[in-house]
C-alpha cells in the first residue's frame, strides 16, 4: 500500500458543535442568603452527603436549603424537580458518586 491514505472517520460528527455554548453561569460573590438547591441523584449515600452539606451551609451562611431526590438514578430528573432547582440561586447535584 502506498504511503499515506485516507480512512473514513469512525467518530460521529456533532453537527451542533458550532452552536454557541450556553453563557457561563453568573459568578456568585456572596453566599449569605442564597437559596441553595440540593438534588439527590439516588446513588448510595448521596442523600446523606448532601444533607450534611446543606446543614453546613445553613450553619455557616444561613442559607435556605431546598433538597429533592430524582426518581431514577440513570434518568433525568422529573420536570417539576428541575423547575424547583432552577428557582434556586445555586445547585449541587451528583455525578457518578
Amino acid at each position: 500500500m502506498a504511503a499515506g491514505f485516507d480512512i473514513v472517520n469512525p467518530i460521529a460528527r456533532v453537527s451542533s458543535a458550532d452552536a454557541a455554548l450556553a453563557s457561563p453561569p453568573k459568578r456568585i460573590g456572596q453566599v449569605e442568603g442564597l437559596r441553595i438547591g440540593l438534588l439527590d441523584n439516588g446513588m448510595p449515600h448521596a442523600a446523606d452527603f448532601l444533607t450534611h452539606l446543606g446543614a453546613a451551609f445553613e450553619r455557616r451562611y444561613r442559607t435556605p436549603i431546598l433538597m429533592r431526590r430524582k426518581g431514577f438514578t440513570a434518568r433525568g430528573a422529573e420536570p417539576q424537580i428541575i423547575d424547583e432547582m432552577a428557582s434556586c440561586d445555586a445547585v449541587v447535584t451528583g455525578f457518578g458518586v
Binding site: 499515506g4 460528527r13 458543535a17
Partner: peptide, 9 residues
C-alpha cells in the same frame, strides 16, 4: 467534535 473531518489521513 468541532474539528471533525469526514476522513482521517
Amino acid at each position: 467534535g468541532g474539528d471533525w473531518t469526514a476522513h482521517l489521513r
